[in-house]
Amino acid sequence: MCGIVGYLDKTRSNAGALGHTVLDMLNALSCRGPDSAGVALYGDTRDGKLVVRVALASRNDFDASAAKILAAAGRFGAVSDSSITDCYLRFQIGAEVCVQPLIDAVESAEPGTEVVSLGRHLEIVKQVGSPENLEATYHVSGFQGTHGLGHTRLSTESRVDLSHSQPFWGHGYPDLAVAHNGHITNYHQLRRRYEQRGIRFYTENDSEIISIYLAIQLRAGHTLEEAFESMHRDLDGSFSCVVATDSQIGFVKDQFALKPLLFTETSDFVAIATEEVAIRSAVSGNYAVREAQAKESRIWRK
């Protein structure tokens, strides 16, 4: 039992409310899983610069770690707007950098650090605890943007820490984020196959394989629609997923419809959630909500 949500503001008439809306939706689902909570929010572009969010290893001195990481990143381009909030270091860097060498340099600058998200629009914030704690630490309700997704976790198969929390970034693929409710039963088999190809896993959470899988599909030139379609062939188990890129948000449900997922679309917004109570408690108005069918997927562009 996890709770996942997604929201797309189509009009931008309510600009500034994105973080608030996603958080309201998530709060309504916190009883489904209070182990950890997180959001992936898509803001406006910062002159095309990449925003990098790094979880610092908690045992270290944050300022000293940050200085080492910023120095390492600085070799790839001009670093700006760096800040530390709780255990996260956030900074911006020129858009032309090669992503994977930058990630490798940042993560090897200080052992135990992880690039939690990277993209021109995407920012992921997640931590152990309920969505209420997330707001108290990071004030995500103030985040302005176009679309976003969220996750509140009941851990069933791997440890509870920041790294194992969701949403997952599609490591190495800018602006890709995934929130998953379910279990991927061919996880170990797929993981072995991917590791043989040199792909790094950051966690033992089976949900991480979805973000890795989608990043591979998109990098190979497939559309998100095609990637959703092939998930039914390549992933076993139950999955209700909300997925976003810099310009899209969508969902996909497994062929057995084992996990709930509902959605609504109006001329103003798209909302996706594990339970209708999440949508109703965040967005007022007269709209119809429907549960997705088995194998159903939908994608909207911002």
Partner: peptide
């Protein structure tokens, strides 16, 4: 008894 739903129903 009777349950009537004007919209759609879940699983």
């Amino acid at each position: 008894g009777t349950a009537i739903v004007h919209g759609s129903a879940g699983n």
